[in-house]
């Protein structure tokens, strides 16, 4: 509880002191507002909010272990595929984790994978933005999981043709979602470059910045689509089964009693 309190104080301090301070600094500095600082602050606040939410949640050791495992898988996934830049399973793994386990684990897996993989690859100004982008990919996948649940998706391959078609449609939708995140990821990452190093900040320069990273984004998006299309159903099935195993409920005493007698 103490740590939660400390964290909430830090969030408050950030919100109350730093945003006005940044505004004052930004305005007093040059002819315009320093959007680099403001966008960074907004990003930090969004992430603090999610971390704060996680700290407040009741989580047991299994939840933590599964989040850490998926994050490690996503982070380590950057290594064997490192030969081809942008073509890695990280985004795919973050998205299916969010899809199956929900918003909060989705964020934690995305943010943790970004941070930890950079322990090995080197931290840079890109780290917090990668954390945010992958975290939000997990969050949005968590929302998608509620809107478009995978009721028996992928589990009914040997049933009627209608069922099979529904599975294919579901699979395509999830793959398209992952593909869109390939582009969104690049756009979020470009915000930093755009606000910090480019002037003037208008639509022309915004799109020009986006265009420069387009080849990478296309590879990323195509990779996401392929990973999700080929592995999505299987992986979702595995994770769903695992989620079921994680939920342990205590039986009421009288039922337990009856079970031991029988």
């Amino acid at each position: 509880m103490k740590s939660v309190k400390a964290l909430s104080y830090i969030t408050l301090t950030l919100a109350v002191i730093m945003i006005p301070a940044a505004l004052v600094m930004g305005i007093s500095l040059a002819d315009s507002v320093n959007w680099s600082i403001i966008s960074t602050l907004i990003m930090i606040l969004v992430m603090t909010a999610f971390y704060f939410r996680f700290e407040r949640h009741r989580v047991n050791s299994k939840d933590l272990a599964v989040i850490a495992t998926m994050a490690a898988l996503a982070a380590a996934g950057r290594i064997p595929f490192a030969a081809i830049p942008s073509l890695q399973p990280t985004t795919f793994l973050v998205i299916i984790t969010g899809y199956v386990f929900g918003v909060q684990p989705g964020f934690m897996v995305g943010a943790t994978a970004a941070l930890v993989s950079n322990f090995m690859l080197g931290q840079g100004p890109w780290t917090p933005w990668q954390m945010l982008a992958w975290g939000l990919a997990g969050v949005s996948a968590g929302i998608l999981g509620r809107v478009m649940p995978a009721n028996r998706a992928g589990t009914a391959e040997d049933e009627g043709p209608g069922e099979k078609r529904r599975t294919t449609v579901w699979r395509l939708k999830l793959s398209l979602f992952a593909m869109v995140w390939g582009f969104l990821f690049g756009w979020l990452m470009n915000i930093y470059t755009w606000t910090t190093f480019v002037y003037p900040l208008d639509w022309d320069s915004f799109w020009a910045t986006q265009v420069t990273s387009l080849p990478m984004d296309v590879i990323h998006a195509a990779g996401n689509f392929l990973f999700t299309f080929m592995l999505g159903p299987q992986f979702v099935r595995v994770l769903m089964r695992f989620r079921k195993r994680m939920i342990v409920e205590k039986l009421p005493d009288r039922i337990k009693w009856r079970l031991t007698i029988e």
């Binding site: 740590s3 933590l64 272990a65 850490a68 994050a71 490690a72 380590a76 943790t112 994978a113 322990f119």
Partner: peptide, 25 residues
């Protein structure tokens, strides 16, 4: 870990898992 205990546990666990995953791979 002083301010965000659970997040720090997740981080530490993830870091610890990566080498074992690499050898597994």
């Amino acid at each position: 870990s002083r301010i965000a205990r659970k997040s720090a546990v997740v981080l530490a666990l993830t870091v610890r898992l990566i080498p074992s995953m690499v050898s597994q791979a």
